[in-house]
């Protein structure tokens, strides 16, 4: 079990590096960075919905906070009455009154 967790962590780290590399490559050839796979994309509809693409899993799920792992760090969504309306392998739709969306600074 520990081994598999380590493997997953390694894979995630590799995906993060690849995403960054992909983003830099896209910038170098003057293409939109969104075309590079791996970058999380967050779409907000007012303060009602947040759609997160390219997430890498749920770290914390509570009524006031949802933390998602992404290729470039941990995405923190704060609000009230938060719930996950739909969770799929690469995308997630969060409902509730969203107050803030931010990336956590690594310690």
């Amino acid at each position: 079990m520990k081994r598999s967790e380590k493997t997953i962590a390694k894979q995630n780290a590799r995906r993060g590096r690849l995403a960054r590399l992909g983003g830099e490559a896209m910038r170098a050839v003057r293409l939109p960075e969104t075309t590079a796979g791996g970058f999380p994309r967050v779409t907000l509809l007012a303060d009602l919905h947040a759609e997160i693409e390219n997430h890498m899993g749920v770290l914390e799920l509570a009524e006031r906070i949802i933390r998602l792992k992404t290729a470039i760090g941990i995405l923190r969504i704060e609000g009230e009455r938060l719930d996950i309306r739909s969770a799929e392998r690469e995308s997630m739709l969060i409902d509730g009154k969203i107050v803030s969306v931010c990336f956590e600074i690594p310690q």
């Binding site: 996950i84 309306r85 739909s86």
Partner: peptide, 13 residues
């Protein structure tokens, strides 16, 4: 579950 390809909906803690 998501890794196994089973989507979940209306997840509420």
């Amino acid at each position: 579950a998501l890794r196994c390809g089973v989507p979940l909906h209306n997840i509420r803690r």
